[in-house]
Write a protein that binds this DNA or RNA. Structure first.
Lengths: 162, 162
DNA sequence: GGTGAATGGTTACAATTGAAACTATTCGAT
DNA sequence: ATCGAATAGTTTCAATTGTAACCATTCACC
């Protein structure tokens, strides 16, 4: 029975062995890549939509008349990514842009009817995929997942900035 | 006020409302991005290592003398990514490459002593970050996370290739 | 009201990544 | 042995993405 757990890395019997396949950031990355690629493939194939574009559409469907920066906040994209996605969507006639009358720097973005139509067709597809994915989990597990991911996101953010 | 619930979208009664912020693939993507950026930043800053390079090192530390595609399999990278990571590591003197005597197409990769040294310094850093991240969760939750991510990975793979 | 800092958004350029073509070697069938 | 297909790995070129610089407008403050 060891009295002095020195600097207790974990009893340190095998402590800092790193197995990529059990390393959480790696696993998250692999999972996310598989999921994103499936989704991106489908959106691109069927609607010529990139994921950034899809995010913009999704958020504008729910909150019309946001400015580009507001879209950025709600999609976890930076403003350059939003700008590019918006350009593509405008070019495809899926978005209408006007400018705030009070502050002419701010854009006001909303879906055109073509954009709405894309949304009503893509959303079920997205939700369908999510459903198929989550079918791997019991309802309880789904709630856990949500909670765990939420906690990790918070923590990861805190670790990131400071 | 609409009288007709038109076209009952999905018999399942479950909303076909899509809220990006509750959409699992989106949440996973955001979480993974935050985590990956923290890690990538630190590796790059302190060791001039990219994430692909780090993965190659991590896997070779544990399984020396793999060929490039074997590395690819164990790191979930494609062979092009491995090739590029290997180039960088060779140039930095962190890897030694020889070729299989039986099949001269296959490379045999192993860490140089400089490479090993990088590994022994980065691994604790990586594990430290993981630990700080997982501190947000109880031990039980950590096990759940592992299990859930595993299940989702399996399922996502199955969904991806038919 | 005028000037400098801040904000919204775009553009330009570099670095990263992905897809396809390519080289070299080996395998399989004849 | 020989020829075509397959495999290991690299290179090339295009597309995506990240960073920084850049306008235009507005704000803060004198």
């Amino acid at each position: 029975m060891q009295r002095k757990v020195r600097h207790a890395r974990r009893g340190n019997g095998s402590a800092d062995q790193l197995h990529l396949e059990h390393f959480v950031p790696y696993r998250l990355s692999v999972l996310t890549n598989i999921v994103s690629m499936s989704i991106a493939g489908a959106y691109e194939r069927e609607f010529g939509l990139s994921i950034p574009q899809w995010r913009v559409i999704a958020v504008l469907a729910r909150y019309p008349d946001l400015s580009a920066i507001e879209v950025a906040e709600r999609t976890a994209m930076d403003k350059v990514a939003v700008s590019r996605a918006v350009q593509g969507l405008l070019a495809a006639g899926r978005l209408v842009r006007s400018y705030d009358s009070g502050d002419r720097r701010r854009s006001r973005l909303r879906l055109s009817s073509a954009g709405k139509s894309v949304y009503t067709r893509v959303a079920p597809l997205a939700l369908g995929y999510e459903k198929k994915l989550l079918d791997a989990l019991s309802p309880t597990d789904r709630r856990s997942l949500d909670r765990l991911v939420g906690r990790l996101m918070e923590r990861a953010k805190r670790l990131a900035d400071r």
